[in-house]
Design a protein around this nucleic acid. Structure first.
Lengths: 139, 139
DNA sequence: TATTGTTATACTCTATAACTATA
DNA sequence: TATAGTTATAGAGTATAACAATA
C-alpha cells in the first residue's frame, strides 16, 4: 500500500492537474499550451530556452509552437544577433488568453482552498513554496 | 500575476507529476498506465468502471487496455452474468509492476518531503487528505 | 430500446534521428 | 566542428461518432 501521505499528495496533484486541464480545454487549449502561454507572459525566449522551461525536446517544441502560431497565439521572430536563433513571443490574442488563464487559475485554486482555515492556508503556502523550489532545483 | 499560493501549488503539482512520470517511464510505463495498474491492485472493474476511475472515455480505455494487454500487464475476462461486460485484472507481471511502482512512489514522495519539519508534514498530510477528498467529490 | 464495448478516424503531444543553416 | 532549429517518422493518449452484440 502507498503511505497515506503519499496517496493524499499524489491524489491532490491529480486534482489540481485535472482542474487546470478543464480550465485549459474550456478555452480549447491543452495544459501544455496553457503553461507555454504562462511562461511567455514575461519572457521572449529562444526555442531552446522555452523547451527547457517546459521540459520538452526541441522537436516537441517545434510542433507545439507550430500549432500555437497557426492559431495566432504566438509569433516566431528572428534574433538580430544570431541567424540560427528564433525567439517566441505572445500575440495580443495570446496575451489576453494568458491573462484570462491566470485569473481562471487563481479562481480555481481559491475555490479548492476554500474549506481550509487561515492557519492551514498559511502553512500550505509556505510548504508549497518550499517544496516547489526544492523540486525544481533537483530537476 | 498568479497569486503566490496559486503559483506554488500549481508548481508543486507539476513537480509531483514530473516525479511520477519519471518513475513510470523508467519502467517503460506512461503515467496513465501506472495509475491504471494502481487502480487494479484492489479491483477487477468493468471497462466502464475503470474508465470512470481514470477519467477517460470508453474508447480511450479500449486503446489503453489493448496496449497493456499486448505487454501482458492485464487480461480481459468475460463477465459471467452479462455477456456485454468485460472485466479487467492484473496479470502476475502487472501485479509485480504495480507493487514496485507503489514502493517507488512512496520513496519519491518521502524524498520530496524530506526537508519539512515533522509539524509541517502533519499539517500537509491533513490538508492534502482534505483537499483531495473535496476535489474528487466535486469531479 | 438501452447498454457495453470496439472500430474508424483524427488530432495533440512526445521522442529519436537525420537534416539544414548559421556560427 | 558545434549549435539552433526543422523535418521525417513513430507511437501513446485522447476524443467523437458509428457500429456490433447483448440485455
Amino acid at each position: 500500500m502507498a503511505s497515506p501521505t503519499t496517496d493524499a499528495l499524489v491524489q491532490l496533484s491529480f486534482v489540481i492537474q485535472s482542474r487546470l486541464s478543464d480550465l485549459a480545454s474550456s478555452r480549447d487549449l491543452s495544459l501544455t499550451q496553457l503553461r507555454m502561454l504562462g511562461v511567455l507572459r514575461d519572457r521572449r525566449p529562444t526555442m531552446q530556452d522555452l523547451a527547457g522551461h517546459l521540459g520538452l525536446t526541441k522537436s516537441s517544441l517545434t510542433g507545439l509552437i507550430d500549432r500555437a502560431e497557426q492559431r495566432s497565439l504566438v509569433v516566431r521572430t528572428p534574433d538580430a544577433s544570431d541567424g540560427r536563433t528564433v525567439r517566441v513571443e505572445l500575440t495580443e490574442l495570446g496575451r489576453s488568453l494568458a491573462a484570462e488563464g491566470t485569473v481562471a487559475m487563481n479562481d480555481a485554486m481559491d475555490a479548492l482552498l476554500e474549506p481550509l482555515s487561515a492557519s492551514d492556508r498559511k502553512v500550505l503556502h509556505r510548504v508549497a513554496v518550499r517544496l516547489a523550489e526544492a523540486g525544481q532545483e533537483q530537476a
